[in-house]
Design a protein around this nucleic acid. Structure first.
Lengths: 150, 150
DNA sequence: CACCTATACGTGTATATACATTTAATATCA
DNA sequence: TGATATTAAATGTATATACACGTATAGGTG
């Protein structure tokens, strides 16, 4: 696998900033492909999995569709339709909000919690296997990513 | 913008590896959104832009569809259809390969080179603006990303 | 040569992304 | 109060992603 240059057969980059953009895009694809491998047997897409984790983090407190959208990793994706898909699989419930009838409260179901539970052991192994870095390097990278967007 | 925890309103992560996966996904979305802002006026998607740069890097030597696929940042995406879209915009040409009639040779057109040229100044500014890191930090990150996938 | 396999490209389908628009409900304020 | 603006969610449309499958060509072996 090795260097980015080798992986995408590009000899050089104009500058390190340009290379970093390409490197992040490529690494993203690498990660998502690996994640898909874990999620596929559970019939979940990465963003559906993300929404389920957001809902689990609510510990039983309902959350509106727009709040889910705010917390999604990809802000431009469509929480409304994702929730629809999850509801069709009986992984979430919807209930109209009484104090504001525009809003819809979403809760994870028992079945939704169960599927996250079943996934957990696979995901833990996945994270350590797919990221070939020491704990210190992971911390450094987390700091740099936070600063990058600053 | 600040920390990831703040951005996606998640209090904590199970471990730094888990946080790094989420951080990379979130940063990817941040980057692609910014990139889209630059590309939109030129009516190009990020992956179309990437394919055009691959073709420019060929310096006039034709390249087959499957070779483009190999060099794409997202391996699972569909080079055949992307090339179709670019051809419809007259940015690339296709010609049947004479020695292997299964293959199709792709070349970037003058119009394709021109659009990359027009984009260049916007993209240079974009890279430095969107990545709030010093050159040293960018180098560190490039090394860590290469090692991550090792 | 006949047969089998591998490769290159294209197509089909479900889902996701990106963004504009619509509809209903709520908030604001003259 | 009534007109206007804002917000929440859903919907529409084009493109992209992920993956299975089909078709034609090429290569290899008996």
């Amino acid at each position: 696998m090795g260097s980015l240059e080798e992986a995408i057969k590009q000899k050089e980059f104009k500058d390190p900033y340009n290379k970093l953009v390409v490197n992040l895009l490529y690494t993203h694809s690498y990660l998502v492909s690996a994640q898909n491998g874990v999620l596929k047997p559970f019939d979940l897409s990465p963003e559906q999995y993300n929404v389920l984790r957001i809902l689990r983090g609510q510990n039983g407190v309902p959350i509106t569709v727009s709040s889910i959208q705010d917390r999604m990793l990809n802000r431009m994706s469509n929480a409304s339709r994702l929730v629809d898909k999850l509801k069709a699989k009986m992984l979430v419930e919807r209930s109209e909000c009484s104090n504001d009838r525009r809003q819809v409260d979403i809760m994870i179901t028992e079945k939704g919690l169960q599927i996250l539970d079943d996934l957990q052991v696979h995901m833990e192994g996945f994270n350590n296997q797919v990221i070939n870095l020491t704990k210190e390097e992971v911390d450094t990278m987390n700091e740099l990513l936070d600063k990058l967007r600053g």
